[in-house]
Design a protein around this nucleic acid. Structure first.
Lengths: 124, 124
DNA sequence: ATTTCATTTGAAATATATTTCATATTTCAC
DNA sequence: GTGAAATATGAAATATATTTCAAATGAAAT
């Protein structure tokens, strides 16, 4: 299963494929924040935020900057804004429910009842 | 952890965040193929390919078309080509190793020895 | 140099996704 | 209709990722 793009894209997309990290990225669209502010803003454990920031940093999605004791993280807008733009266009065009949906397991479960409607982009 | 984008992007990115599915997408860049051809082309079980095609279909990344007994799948190039383009640009600019790397766990393990070098986009 | 605040780290516990194997469906040719 | 080919499905087995908790580190103020 090791193939050109498959080999190179996996970490890129799996870093984005997580609700906590997506929430962090979205929060940072409004400007850079330190770790505590992010944790409070999202109502999550600070150490969990740290772990996820590390993964985002490893992929170049956020940039850290030290100010006194704190560490501020800012968004890599160059990559992320066009990425989100593609996603939004795709969702608008291909998601019948316009973003009202389920996880992959949830989706599988639901299709049982409601029979294969293509494309549900979010999770409940 | 339910936040605008977080809520709507998760399935989109997690469907892409898988080596088997990325390999399928890459294979389909050379034109549409039926399930058996994909399975043989990637040297994987047919039923595993089917499962993954279903997920790709649910997200609108591939389009199925019936021809006799077979089912051909083609790529949603409108979404995927720009997406790959963004990825390639990002990797070129932010990945120090230009795509020679590890899974998230592997990366974590490696950073222990080689200390935090940012951005490694692939997996070994 | 001790204390305090902010953040990171490691490893176990937990949650989630993927693959496999056996079986079911679907479609077509006869 | 029966049989054979192509694909799909369900559920268990396996693999992988995430979160949590306790502890460690780092930076600054006193």
């Amino acid at each position: 299963m090791k193939h050109g793009l498959s080999e190179t894209c996996h970490l890129f997309f799996s870093t984005l494929a997580n609700p906590a990290r997506l929430a962090i990225l979205e929060l940072l669209r409004n400007g850079s924040k330190n770790v505590t502010e992010i944790a409070e803003g999202l109502n999550q454990e600070q150490s969990m935020i740290s772990h996820n920031l590390q993964l985002l940093y490893n992929c170049g999605f956020v940039f850290p900057e030290r100010r006194k004791k704190e560490r501020f993280y800012s968004l890599n807008k160059e990559t992320l804004e066009p990425l989100f733009k593609i996603f939004l266009y795709h969702a608008e065009k291909y998601c019948p429910t316009k973003g009202k949906c389920l996880t992959q397991n949830g989706l599988r479960r639901k299709r049982k009842m409601a029979a294969a409607s293509p494309m549900c982009l979010s999770h409940q």
